[in-house]
Amino acid sequence: MSDTLVIISIYLIFLLGTLVFKSRIISGPWLFLFRSFLPNWRFYHRVGPLPQIYVRYCASQIWNEWQLIQPRAVRRYVDLFHNPDNNLALAMQNLVEHLAADLRQIDNPEHIRTLVTYRLVLRFARLAAQKRCPDSTIQQYQFQLRMAPPFGVATLDAVVLESAPVDY
């Protein structure tokens, strides 16, 4: 029994050690794609700056107000068994967070528009504009990435990236 308790104690001390001692961050394109092998069990652990996407579109030569695009849904019990649309919406939000992370790491700001995340978010913005203007009169659209402060609201001062207007 004592050997078992020693092993369990070593395991728990190791876990605590991973919280206290930080190794250098290892990153890379293949690691990113295979990150499911390196589980990060830190879920909702801290309220940090929250990347948020705002979209606006031009219809009939008039630009509307910037609109926040965030995952929102009506709760249903069946979602416990089949929830594709909500999971997709959450994946879209993850994409926005990845764009914010990429912006922090990019060396040359001129290359922002070549980022995979930027281009995917641009498509996301197009889809969001389309849903809000179903009569297909959109001529152009664009998005803003804002960083909402912890426990705060993202104002125009919080814009970190704005796309140029794009033809619909």
Partner: peptide, 16 residues
Amino acid sequence: IRWRGAFNGGSDFMTI
């Protein structure tokens, strides 16, 4: 990989 490494985060990790 098709979903850029993870679709739903933690549930993908635990499934793996």
